[in-house]
Amino acid sequence: MATETHGAEESASGLPQLDFSTFPNQIFWLVVTLIVIYLILSRVALPRIASVLAERQGAITNDIAAAEELKQKAAEAEAAYEKALADARAEAGRIAAEAKAEMQAEVDAAVQKADAEIAARTAEGEARIAEIRDGAATAVNQVAKDTAEAVAAALGVDVDRAALEAAVDERTKG
């Protein structure tokens, strides 16, 4: 009591902070205020903010996981693409080699056929030449015999045809 009256007196000339007559009022309203703030925060605000923060953390974690997964998928796709590319290259090489081999075989066959044909023609030609040569030789023989007979007749020598032929054959042989 004594301090309170002293405080009231002092307030006339001193600090309003030391005017004890206003203390109950301030303390009462402070307690009311603190309780209201506490209720607002603990019942509404803090749980809400905590849930928002947790949700955000969850979303970020999920997104990072999803990104990781997508990255993995992209790497897989790239590997698959590389593999497909390599396969295609190998296939292309194989087809090219096959085609080349086929064509080579065809060319070889054609060359062979052509060679055979040439050989056949050559043989044919040679045969014909031999025939012609033979024919020519025979003709020469015949002409020589006829000529020899005619020469003998002209000279008035009666020559046996068979002996004449044998003699011509003898001469034209070599």
Binding site: T22, P24, N25, Q26, I27, F28, W29, L30, V32, T33, V36, I37, I40, L41, V44, A45, L46, R48, I49, V52
Partner: peptide, 27 residues
């Protein structure tokens, strides 16, 4: 008196409203 509505009450009430505005309405 202890129950009198004073400027203390007023500014504490404004503080409560500001806090509620930020922490409750804001979120």
């Amino acid at each position: 008196h202890w129950y009198t509505v004073t400027n203390v009450t007023l500014w504490m009430a404004i503080a409560v409203l500001a806090i509620a505005a930020l922490m409750v309405l804001g979120t």
